[in-house]
């Protein structure tokens, strides 16, 4: 009888644990650190051609420098507190950008807690990882985030609800980890 109860309890308790473990196992990318080159293709409604920009990212433990060098030189500082734009020799915070800052840092650094708390995980075409936001405000901004790559994250696609989407290709800089 006791064995039966233990078995029953195991049956009841195991599935959620198993699902959580299963989701976590999908997060296979190694966290990114240091400097990486990027190429961004931004498809915006109303624009006949996607906007192409390139530059480099400087990733540290709690912040990320997003330096676009072409077609224009612009800098963004991204942290859990939000996104700040480099304007007139200083970083100016963008109001309401906290979640974007947290999202970008979490995806690039593969922060398991944040990703599991805010997204439903699935495997998509080309063995890419699909993140579907499950709660506001992320699900009011993005319909899906796609992460692709082998061992490390190489391609990132942010699909917005309004039809815009941003493809970001990442590549470690030559000679740098």
């Amino acid at each position: 009888m006791n064995r039966f109860i233990v078995l029953l309890l195991l049956l009841v308790l195991l599935p959620p644990v198993a699902v959580a473990d299963q989701s976590a196992s999908l997060l296979r990318f190694a966290p990114l650190q240091g400097q990486l080159d990027f190429v961004q293709l931004k498809t915006v409604q109303g624009l006949p051609v996607p906007l192409r920009s390139s530059g480099y990212l400087q990733i540290s433990a709690d912040k990320l420098l997003w330096h676009t060098t072409a077609p224009v030189d612009t800098k963004l500082l991204i942290s859990p507190a939000g996104v700040s734009q480099w304007q007139q020799q200083q970083y100016v915070a963008v109001a309401g950008s906290e979640f974007i800052g947290q999202l970008l840092l979490a995806v690039l650094q593969q922060q398991q807690d944040f990703i599991l708390a805010h997204f439903q995980l699935a495997t998509g075409p080309n063995n890419c990882l699909l993140l579907q936001p499950v709660q506001p405000p992320l699900n009011q901004l993005f319909s899906q985030i796609e992460l692709c790559g082998q061992q490390t994250l190489e391609q990132l696609t942010l699909t917005e609800l309004n039809g815009n989407h941003t493809d970001i290709s990442l590549q470690p800089q030559a000679g740098k980890p």
């Binding site: 915006v44 409604q45 920009s53 676009t68 224009v72 970008l104 309004n162």
Partner: peptide
């Protein structure tokens, strides 16, 4: 600068 940021834009902004 804003256009090239990965942050989302308002619908029909441009």
């Amino acid at each position: 600068q804003r256009l090239l940021s990965p942050a989302p834009l308002l619908a029909e902004a441009l």
